[in-house]
Structures are given as structure tokens and as C-alpha cells.
Computed example of a mutant assay.
Amino acid sequence: MLIVVFQVRRFPDTQGGTKTELGVLLWQRALDPEAGTWSLPGGRLRDDEDLTTSARRQLAEKVDVREVAHLEQLSVFSDPHRVPGPRTIASTYLGLVPITSDPHLPEDTAWHPVSDLPAMSFDHGVMVENARTRLAAKLSYTNIAFGLAPAEFAMSTLREIYCAALGYQVDATNLQRVLKRRDVLTPTGTTAPPGRAGGRPPALFRFTESRLRVTDEFAALRPPG
């Protein structure tokens, strides 16, 4: 089993600043085969556990990631030659970690921007791309963004999460209108602290549900233009 864990994070940019992007959790292989490349976290299924329980256990034990807001099965990779040695079939999972979570990672483990992956082990790069495609699709027709968002948020924060996960810009006003129409968001009745520039404090929202729900099965969020 292998788990593609995504989190929206800030990464260094080429100008000496930072940018918000979708990150994926990887660990660096110390031994052959393919020593030095980066792998998805995972491991073997125990006799007494199901796949979902195993995925959560392995994330907690191996990379100390315990705050996984959403976990779902992706696909099975069964190419007989996908790894050297005995045939190994990999069941893959998608995991989402809220933007506010900051797990203490082992030294050989790090977050990497999905847009700039390092040298990946075996077929793990394909797995990351499959998971990114699944996430982008489900952002259109489900409430899956709850897995990436904090408990309460301003619309500007939610827009930033959507932009990072989708890989293109999203208008905050349109996003709020669409999500409220689908009964995805609930106003908290409170506001965030005002920024340095002053002005009206932004209203805070939360997701109506913290479990996956189809909100519009025919919807599709598309890039501008």
C-alpha cells in the first residue's frame, strides 16, 4: 500500500520569497533499488486490519502524520515489472492534511511541491499525478476541500487552497457563491482579526460537513479564459 498525502503549503520561490502550492509528502530511499530517489509513504497490510486502518497506521508510525482529514482509495498498480524483484501489487490511497497541520517529520521525509517533484522511485510519480487529477476533479463536484482547509477560514484562505490544489486562479466571489448555493459553507457569525491595512474584518466560514459529499455531479471548475 502507498499513500499520496497532499497539503497546501508555502514553498520557496525563485525570487527569494514564498508561494502557496499543493505539496506531497515523500521520503528519500537510503538503500537500493533506486537509492536517493523519493517514495510515497506506505507499507504492508497486517492480517488484522483493513486498508484504511492500515493507511492511517502507517502514516502515524512511519512519518508521524496523524491529522488526516480525508482518506480514500485511488487505484491499484499491478504491472508485473513495476518494481524489481518479486511481483508487488500496490493499492494507492489519497490522503488530505489541513493547511494548519504541521507534523514533525523524520529527517528523511519532506513536503515537495507537486509542480516540481524530485526524482521519484519506480512508478510513484504516476501515482502522484493520478491523485492530483482525482483531487482536482472532486473539487468541482464534491466538498472534498474540507480535507485541506482549517476548521474556520476567510474566503480568501479558501480561495488560496482551491488555487493551489487546482493549479490555476479561482475568483473568490464566484467560489463563495457556488459553494453557498450547494450548501457547502456555513457562516460562523464571527470575523477574522483585521489586517495591517485595516478595513472591514473578513467573515469566517466553516464547511457544513467534514465527510465527503457529492454536491453537484455534473459540475466542473475550469481555468479562466
Rank of each mutant, 00 (worst) to 15 (best):
F6Y: 11
F153A: 04
Q15G: 12
W38N: 03
E209P: 01
Q28H: 09
D116N: 09
D13E: 05
K62N: 14
A90H: 15
D50E: 07
A149T: 13
L25D: 06
R82E: 07
Q58T: 03
E61L: 08
L179Y: 12
A60M: 03
Y168S: 04
R66G: 02
G225I: 06
R66L: 01
G16N: 06
N130Y: 14
P201S: 01
L2V: 09
F11R: 03
M120Y: 04
D102S: 14
Y141N: 12
L94W: 12
A131T: 05
P41R: 10
G167L: 06
R56S: 01
T142V: 07
H70W: 14
P223K: 01
E129Q: 10
P224I: 11
N143R: 08
I89K: 09
V4D: 02
K19D: 00
E61Q: 15
E61I: 00
P41N: 06
P224D: 06
D171A: 14
S121R: 13
T100F: 02
R200I: 08
G147V: 07
L175S: 08
E72C: 09
H124S: 03
Q73W: 06
Y168C: 05
P113S: 00
V214S: 12
G17K: 09
T186S: 10
F218G: 00
T186W: 07
F207V: 03
P193F: 10
R57K: 00
L117K: 11
N130E: 09
E34F: 09
A165N: 11
L59A: 08
G42N: 06
P118V: 00
K180H: 04
M155N: 14
G85Y: 08
A137W: 06
R66E: 13
R56H: 12
G85H: 10
E160K: 11
R206W: 07
R10N: 09
I144S: 12
D102L: 00
T109H: 05
V178L: 13
Q28C: 13
V126A: 13
L71C: 10
D50P: 00
T190L: 07
A219M: 04
A149V: 10
P223I: 01
P106W: 10
H112R: 07
A69P: 01
I3T: 15
L166Y: 14
R10A: 14
T100K: 02
S210Q: 15
I144R: 10
A55Y: 03
W27D: 00
T52N: 02
V128Y: 02
D13A: 05
D123S: 14
R46Q: 14
V170H: 08
V76E: 14
V8G: 11
V68D: 03
V184L: 06
I161Y: 11
P187V: 05
G189K: 09
D79R: 10
R46S: 13
D171S: 13
E209I: 00
T186R: 13
S91V: 15
Q15E: 15
G195L: 04
T157M: 04
E49V: 01
A151L: 02
